[in-house]
Simulated scan of single mutants.
Amino acid sequence: MFRGKGGLKPIPLMVLALGAGPATAFPCAFSTECYEADACTGTSFAIEVDIDGKGISTDYGDLTVVAVKETGRLTTLFATGQGAEYLLSLTPQAARFTTHSNEGPLAITYLGTCEGAF
């Protein structure tokens, strides 16, 4: 209920449902790094995702989100910046962040989770 002219009025259900979707800004933390064909190692790499702001912030610089695809409980973001292309795939249980360097080819994959994304 909200108070407008004439007293209390019901809030339409559509307004109440706005907060039910996935979050648009959230942190991701990665505990495993896999560099090309080398053995995976531990890491403490983290990023901050802002879907509405179309950006991903890292310790190495900011990336621009160029596309977002949502399929059920899978969200995939495509980003560019810093001489590479980036792919972030996440579900409520896990996240994968892959860097594809424009020099090389060279790929680095990070394994972790994104808190509060769902």
Rank of each mutant, 00 (worst) to 15 (best):
L77K: 03
S44W: 05
S57C: 02
D50K: 14
G7K: 14
A37Y: 08
L18I: 00
E115Q: 14
K5V: 03
G6V: 01
E115K: 13
T75D: 00
G6M: 08
T80K: 14
R73N: 13
T113D: 07
T113E: 06
S31F: 13
G42S: 13
V49W: 08
A20M: 07
D38I: 01
A79N: 09
K9S: 12
A67W: 00
G116H: 05
P27H: 06
G42H: 11
P92Q: 08
A84G: 10
F118D: 06
D59K: 09
M14E: 03
T76V: 07
F45K: 03
P22S: 07
G104T: 08
T64D: 11
G72P: 05
L111C: 03
C40W: 00
S89L: 01
Y110K: 04
A79E: 06
E103R: 12
I108C: 14
C40L: 02
S31M: 05
A20E: 10
M1C: 09
P27Y: 08
D59E: 09
S57N: 04
G4H: 07
I56A: 02
V65F: 08
G55T: 07
T32Y: 00
H100P: 03
F78A: 10
G42E: 06
G83Y: 07
P10D: 13
L90M: 15
G61A: 06
T64E: 11
A25P: 02
G112L: 04
R3S: 08
E33W: 09
M1S: 13
D59H: 04
A46P: 08
G81Y: 07
P10C: 00
C34G: 13
N102H: 15
L74W: 00
A20S: 10
S89Q: 13
F30L: 06
T41W: 14
D59Q: 14
V66D: 04
N102L: 15
G116M: 01
S89I: 02
L90G: 08
T41N: 13
V15E: 11
V66N: 06
L63H: 03
G6P: 05
L74T: 10
L74N: 03
R3Y: 12
T71S: 12
G53I: 00
I11Q: 10
P12S: 14
I56Q: 03
G7I: 09
D38V: 05
A25D: 06
C28P: 08
G55D: 02
F97K: 12
C40P: 04
V49T: 06
V15G: 05
G4F: 14
T64G: 05
G116L: 04
C28L: 10
T113M: 02
F30I: 00
V15N: 09
G81L: 04
M14D: 11
K5R: 11
E103G: 07
G21T: 13
P105T: 00
D38M: 09
S89D: 03
T43A: 07
K5Y: 15
